[in-house]
Simulated scan of single mutants.
Amino acid sequence: MKILDWYILKRYLLTFFVMLLLFIPIGITVHLAEKIGKILENEAPFGEVMLYFLDFTIYFAHLLFPLFLFLSVIWFTSKLANNTEIIAFLSSGVSFSRFLRPYMIGASVVSVFALVLGLYLAPEASKGFNDFNYKYLKTGKSAVDNQNVYRQIDDTTYIFVSSFDTKQKRGQNFTLEYIRDNKLVSKITASSIQYVEKDSTYRMNTYVKRYIGDNNDIIETARRKDTLFAFDLEDLTPVEYIAETLRYGELNRFIEKEEARGSSYISRYKLVKYRIWSLPVSVFILTIIAVAVSSIKRRGGMGVNLAVGICIAMVFVFFDKIFGVMAAQSDFPPLLAVWFPNMLFGILAAYLLYNAKR
């Protein structure tokens, strides 16, 4: 039986990677045809363009990972069924569970690959991909929520700017408040604040600082004042895709910091964190569904199996996107949003596997 195990395992892995190699160039070609006008218009350097498409390759592969896997398993399993190879396996006394074992070994290999991709490679690729997009392809669009920014820096410090320019690192109508024991201790206001990289200082115009006393207040004013603060304006207004660019340890620390600051994007950040672990599990679920659907020889041949498989894959992607949007835009729990498609399709996988055994 080891010969048959190796035969199925090699077909599983080979078909999956061939599917990736076939679809990725198609994706690059379509994307290039769509974006080439803006790339030339904005005179993007050739080296940056090459790095962009390398990042796009990894980003694209990670994004559509479950779909590629599902279709590849259906493809080669349908070929086995049409050639009556599966009937020969089962007729020799091999149970369906035993027949499924090399698929599970292959799924384990692919899930480890997916985990490494999500933990290390995809964050770097996502950073390059999104940075290039907003630098050359999405001119005029902002990647940050830069209007009416209100953040909690620590237990006692709160800031506000009415608007923020990420390129100039400049905020308008700046306010900083120190609050202890629910009492306002001091308050700083300025018509504008700008981060000076050369000196790592902040330059404020029309500076006013008020110390709140028990009997009277002390007011300090200046037309312009340079000072140090224990925060970076870029940290106060992170780009909306920042979570996708952080490795797992960095992502955990970033989420803790953003929760303390009361970030409105915290659900989006948690979605990225939970998806890193849900993707490897979905590999096993989709493998079982694909085998159960395509292991039966049908009158319509491989085309019927592929049609059924594509429909199931589209429904899976639909549920994943819908619940992701719900969690990002509402109070729907991100953990449930990420794992609900796996739970739902896990039940479907168990049902299909039971009927396939029969």
Rank of each mutant, 00 (worst) to 15 (best):
L271R: 05
E197G: 02
Y274T: 13
E244W: 01
T237G: 01
M204S: 13
E259W: 06
E234W: 02
L246F: 06
R210N: 12
V185H: 12
Y265R: 15
E259F: 04
E259L: 14
V281K: 01
N205M: 09
V272I: 14
Y207C: 09
S295N: 12
P280S: 03
S267P: 00
Y269G: 02
I266L: 10
T201N: 08
T287G: 07
A292E: 05
T206I: 10
Y274D: 09
G262R: 07
G171K: 05
E220H: 06
E244I: 00
F254V: 11
Q194H: 03
T227Y: 00
Y207D: 08
A290T: 01
Y202Q: 00
T245Q: 06
I288D: 05
A230T: 10
D199M: 06
N215H: 13
D232C: 00
T201Y: 01
Q168S: 13
S264W: 07
L271P: 05
L176K: 11
E256D: 14
V196K: 04
S282D: 03
S295I: 09
I288A: 15
V291N: 11
I276H: 04
K187A: 05
I179S: 10
K169T: 09
N173Y: 11
L286A: 10
L233Y: 02
A260T: 00
K169S: 11
V291F: 08
Y265Q: 15
D181T: 10
A292I: 07
I276S: 03
R261V: 00
V239D: 02
R170L: 12
F229E: 08
G171L: 04
M204D: 08
R268I: 08
K209T: 01
E256H: 01
E197Q: 15
P238E: 09
S264G: 05
E256V: 09
F254P: 04
I242D: 05
D217Q: 08
A222N: 05
Y274H: 14
N173L: 06
E177Q: 14
T175N: 13
Y202G: 02
Y195T: 02
Q194D: 03
L228T: 11
E220D: 13
K209D: 04
I296S: 13
L271V: 11
L251C: 05
K257R: 15
E234L: 10
K187H: 06
F231Y: 14
G262V: 09
N215Y: 12
S264Y: 07
I266P: 02
V281R: 01
M204K: 05
D214F: 11
K198V: 02
V293Q: 08
L286W: 07
Y274W: 14
N173R: 13
L271Q: 07
G262W: 09
V196M: 06
R268Q: 13
L246R: 12
N173V: 07
F229D: 02
